[in-house]
C-alpha cells in the first residue's frame, strides 16, 4: 500500500462519480455521483495524511470534507423534495429553470 496506489484508487472513484453526475437524469442518481466524488476526495486526503504528514491537524480538514458531504446530501434531498412537489418530477432535464 503506497500513496500512489491510494491516489489511483481515489482517481478511479472520482472518475466513476463524475460519469454519474454528468450522465444521470434522476436527481438522486446525480447526488450519488457527487457523493462518490466527495468520497474519493476523502480517501485521497486520508492517503495524503498517512503517507506525507500524519499530524492531527490534517484530520480536521477531513472532518470538514465530511461536513461538506453532509451539507450536499441534505440540500440535495431538500431540492429533490421541492422539485417533486412543484413539478411532480425527479429528472434534471425537467428542472432547467434552476439554472436561470
Amino acid at each position: 500500500m503506497t500513496l500512489e496506489a491510494v491516489l489511483v484508487v481515489a482517481a478511479a472513484l472520482f472518475a466513476v462519480g463524475l460519469y454519474g453526475a454528468l450522465s444521470q437524469q434522476v436527481v438522486v442518481m446525480v447526488m450519488m455521483g457527487l457523493e462518490l466524488m466527495i468520497n474519493a476526495v476523502l480517501l485521497a486526503a486520508a492517503g495524503f495524511w498517512w503517507f506525507l504528514a500524519p499530524d492531527p491537524s490534517g484530520q480536521v480538514l477531513m472532518l470538514v470534507v465530511l461536513a461538506a458531504m453532509t451539507v450536499e446530501m441534505a440540500m440535495g434531498f431538500a431540492v429533490a423534495t421541492l422539485l417533486h412537489r412543484r413539478g411532480q418530477t425527479d429528472m434534471t432535464d425537467m428542472a432547467q429553470e434552476l439554472s436561470q
Binding site: 491516489l7 482517481a11 478511479a12 472520482f14 454528468l22 450522465s23 444521470q24 437524469q25
Partner: peptide
C-alpha cells in the same frame, strides 16, 4: 435508459481519471 450525454460523460470521466492517475 435514464441517462443523457453518455458519450460526453464517459469521455470526461476517462480524461479526468488519466489526468489524476
Amino acid at each position: 435508459d435514464m441517462t443523457h450525454g453518455k458519450k460526453t460523460a464517459i469521455g470526461a470521466s476517462v480524461g479526468v481519471f488519466v489526468l489524476l492517475a
